[in-house]
Design a protein around this nucleic acid. Sequence first.
DNA 1: AATTTGAGTTAGTGTATGCTAACAATAATA
DNA 2: TATTATTGTTAGCATACACTAACTCAAATT
Lengths: 145, 145
Amino acid sequence: MSVKKLSTSMEDYLEAIYMLQTENKSARSTDIADKLKVKKSSVTNALQLLAEKGFINYDKYSEVTLTDKGLKYADEVYFKHKTIKRFFTNILNVDEAVAEDNACKIEHVIDKEVFDKLSYFLEFIISTDITSVNIEKFKKEYGKN
Amino acid sequence: MSVKKLSTSMEDYLEAIYMLQTENKSARSTDIADKLKVKKSSVTNALQLLAEKGFINYDKYSEVTLTDKGLKYADEVYFKHKTIKRFFTNILNVDEAVAEDNACKIEHVIDKEVFDKLSYFLEFIISTDITSVNIEKFKKEYGKN
DNA sequence: AATTTGAGTTAGTGTATGCTAACAATAATA
DNA sequence: TATTATTGTTAGCATACACTAACTCAAATT
């Protein structure tokens, strides 16, 4: 069965842990707090909840790691993040920081169908010499589903 | 000076009032509750807050109307809504209901720069015979700012 | 080993938002 | 007009999430 969707806030925590873990091999409360611009006590709160729900391994006073479930979830969020950001920067020519910020907000609310199609569209535009392509052909292709 | 940003939730209420007002010439609590799938008491709550902040004219037990400030704000939100939805349906070929729903979520979090560029991109693609256009030329044009 | 410093936690508070249940006002209708 | 039904409000409660202040633990330094 599928994992229940987390709140925007909890997805942010999970993603922060994911990124720190990737960068540093570990995630400390202070780093998470800095990254998300919240206080350490808020982090503790979130960690307890994420642990309860089985997304992280958490023992008081020690470093946090993602469980398999947590890793899978975070991976998906992060993939969305990267893709949306890429659309903003590469296609829309949005400023890097703004793209980062907006991707971070939209990744939590976009549905699978919309994301998948955006993703397809992005790849299509990037990989294709658009001068040789008719937009209707494009739509027929990726619009099949 | 610019109007302070409302929460997602309050923007939803304002937009609902706007839509009902446009459709029906007036907005009743029950209709707002139905549209947003919340209870009437939650609507009352929101109305009080929106009235305090000067977005609506509100007297107990009577119909609600938007102030000029409220109308302006709602107009902007609704314009975003329509544009984002149009991108999803017309370009990404997303299902109408899903597009509606996602536009409704993204309209609250997207920044001006990203929205403006998306908007421009949408018009560009729709209005141009894409076969005759090079994507780099396009980017040069609308990417100027 | 004792002390100091920094990291992490807990407890308590505040705000935003939703809910239910009980009540009040208005509108519809008998 | 009196009654009933609908609509709207209030009060009280619950949840999510952030904060501060006070505390505990662990690591680093002496």
